[in-house]
C-alpha cells in the first residue's frame, strides 16, 4: 500500500538530472550501499571468527551438550534448548496479551484513551534491556522464588515444568522478562493491523448481529492473520536475540530439562557471558559459532516476516 502511495507523487524518474542531482544521488546511493556492505561484512566476519569451531565440530556442534574448557570440547545443544524454551514461553505469554492489547487499542478503548494508553505500552519498549535485567534479577527473581515458585511446586509439582526447587534465577524469570520486552513490539504491530481492517467489514459484521467480540474473532483477526504471524515471527526473533536481560536473569548454567525453575542458559546469553573471557582460541571461536547460529536464525525470521508482509500487500493490491 505504501509503495503505491510513494509512486503516486514520485517525480518522473527519467527526468534529466543536473550535476547537483547526480551528486546527491551518488551520496545517498553510497549511504544505501553501506547498509548492504555492512550486512555482508557482518555475515562474513562472524563466520570467519567462527571458522575454526565450524571446521572442528561441524554440525555435531548443534547436538553435543559438552561445554568444557579443559577438554576444549564445545557443543550448543543445551543453549539451543534454553533459547527454544525461553522464546517459546515468552511468545506463549506475549502473543495472546499482545493481540488483546491490539484489539483493545483498535476496537474497544474510548477514543480519548487510545493515544495515551498506546503511548504507555510503547514506553515499555523504551526501557533499556539492562534495566529490565537488573529489575528481573533483584526484584522479580526474589519475588518469584519466595512466592510464586513454591506455590507452583506445591500444587502442580507433578507437571515436569513445575518440578524442582525455587530459585531467584532461571528459565521462568528470563521468560517473563522477555515477555515484557516482546509485548510492546507485537502489540503495536497488531494495533496497526486491526486499524487497517476496512471499517465497512467491521460494520457489516456488526450489522449482521454479531457482538463486538464475534466481529473481532470472525472478521478482524482472520482478516489480518498473516500480519499477526509476521508480528509473532518478529517477536520470536527479538526473544532469541536478547542477550543482556536474559544473561542477568537466567543464571548461566547450561542444561537440558523440563523444569522452568533453576539456572539455564541461552545462545545469546552465553555469548554475552563468555566471549571476552574465553580461555582458549577454540572456545572463542565456538562462541562466534553461536553468534553465527543466532545470525542465521534472525535472518531467517526477518526475511520470512518480510515475505509474508509482501504477499499480503500483493493480495490486497490485487483485491
Amino acid at each position: 500500500m505504501s509503495t503505491s502511495a510513494e509512486t503516486d507523487f514520485a517525480l518522473p524518474r527519467r527526468a534529466r538530472l543536473h550535476i547537483g542531482d547526480l551528486a546527491l544521488r551518488g551520496i545517498a546511493g553510497a549511504a544505501a550501499l553501506t547498509v548492504m556492505i555492512v550486512l555482508i561484512l557482518i555475515a562474513y566476519k562472524v563466520t570467519q571468527e567462527a571458522w575454526d569451531a565450524i571446521s572442528t565440530f561441524g554440525l555435531g556442534f548443534l547436538t553435543s551438550s559438552e561445554w568444557n574448557a579443559v577438554t576444549n570440547q564445545y557443543g550448543a545443544r543445551d543453549l539451543i534448548w534454553g533459547t527454544a524454551v525461553t522464546s517459546f514461553f515468552a511468545l506463549l505469554f506475549a502473543v495472546p496479551i499482545s493481540i488483546a492489547i491490539g484489539l483493545f487499542l483498535s476496537e474497544l478503548a474510548p477514543r480519548r484513551l487510545r493515544g495515551p494508553v498506546g503511548a504507555l505500552v510503547e514506553l515499555l519498549a523504551a526501557i533499556p534491556s539492562v534495566v529490565l535485567g537488573l529489575w528481573g534479577i533483584l526484584v522479580m527473581g526474589p519475588f518469584l522464588e519466595a512466592h510464586v515458585e513454591p506455590f507452583l511446586i506445591d500444587h502442580f509439582g507433578w507437571i515436569p515444568l513445575f518440578s524442582g526447587t525455587p530459585s531467584n534465577v532461571g528459565l521462568l524469570p528470563a521468560c517473563l522478562v522477555l515477555t515484557i520486552m516482546i509485548v510492546p513490539i507485537v502489540s503495536s504491530i497488531c494495533r496497526e493491523l486491526f486499524d487497517s481492517v476496512p471499517s465497512d467489514l467491521k460494520a457489516g459484521s456488526l450489522a449482521l448481529g454479531s457482538t463486538r467480540w464475534e466481529m473481532m474473532r470472525g472478521v478482524a483477526i482472520p482478516q489480518v492473520s498473516g500480519g499477526i504471524v509476521a508480528a509473532v515471527i518478529l517477536g520470536l526473533a527479538r526473544a532469541m536475540g536478547e542477550a543482556i536481560a536474559v544473561s542477568l536473569t537466567i543464571g548461566g548454567t547450561a542444561r537440558t530439562g523440563w523444569s522452568l525453575f533453576g539456572s539455564a542458559d541461552t545462545i545469546a546469553s552465553r555469548i554475552a557471558n563468555q566471549y571476552q573471557g574465553a580461555a582458549t582460541h577454540l572456545q572463542q571461536s565456538s562462541i562466534a559459532y553461536l553468534a553465527t547460529i543466532l545470525l542465521v536464525l534472525s535472518l531467517g525470521a526477518n526475511l520470512s516476516a518480510a515475505l509474508i508482509v509482501r504477499r499480503i500487500r500483493r493480495r490486497m493490491g490485487a483485491g
Binding site: V35, V46, A291
Partner: peptide, 25 residues
C-alpha cells in the same frame, strides 16, 4: 527501494550481541 527496506529491516533485526562480536572482530 523495496529491497532497501527489507535490508534495513534485516539489519535492525540482527541481534545486538552479534553486532558486538562483529565490531570486535
Amino acid at each position: 527501494a523495496e529491497g532497501m527496506r527489507i535490508a534495513l529491516n534485516v539489519l535492525a533485526g540482527v541481534p545486538t550481541i552479534v553486532i558486538g562480536i562483529f565490531i570486535f572482530g
